[in-house]
């Protein structure tokens, strides 16, 4: 598996959530993802980027275009140095929210991508990694 190119976007303000969605839509089109798959990935980005802004106090989205033989994919890492998540199992429960949300962001995003990984340490921060292949 090769990393073809990569970059990073700030995810600090709510406008950055829109910009992150637009940037990933463009990458997804370049990687030849079908429209439905583009939509799924962009929706996952919206959920994770919003969490980074709202709960993580802002952070970064790192992106990477992957190649594995004929397949192309996109790996995204959302990272912040916010308060972290004390109980990951609870946070990954459908419908659980600490704020006024629907509690669908993390679990929904996980269903919308091919690979999903979350690491979080209270007081240190949170890092969510997703991959979607074409």
């Amino acid at each position: 598996m090769n990393s073809v190119r990569s970059g990073s976007h700030p995810v600090r303000l709510e406008q950055d959530v829109v910009l992150a969605r637009q940037a990933v839509r463009k990458l997804a089109q370049e990687c030849g993802l079908r429209l439905v798959d583009q939509t799924k990935l962009v929706t996952a980005v919206s959920e994770l980027a919003r969490n980074t802004v709202v709960y993580g106090g802002g952070g970064e989205m790192d992106w990477e275009v992957l190649e594995d033989g004929p397949r192309k994919g996109i790996r995204l890492v959302f990272r912040d140095e916010g308060p972290g998540i004390a109980d990951l199992k609870l946070a990954l429960t459908d419908g659980w929210t600490s704020g006024g949300g629907l509690g669908l962001g993390l679990t929904g995003a996980r269903r919308l991508v091919d690979e999903f990984d979350i690491a979080s340490t209270p007081g240190v921060g949170t890092r969510v990694t997703i991959v979607r292949w074409n």
Binding site: V36, L102, G108
Partner: peptide, 13 residues
Amino acid sequence: QPAVAITLVELGL
């Protein structure tokens, strides 16, 4: 849009 509808189901909304 159809792609949006399909995604909403998977999101769980």
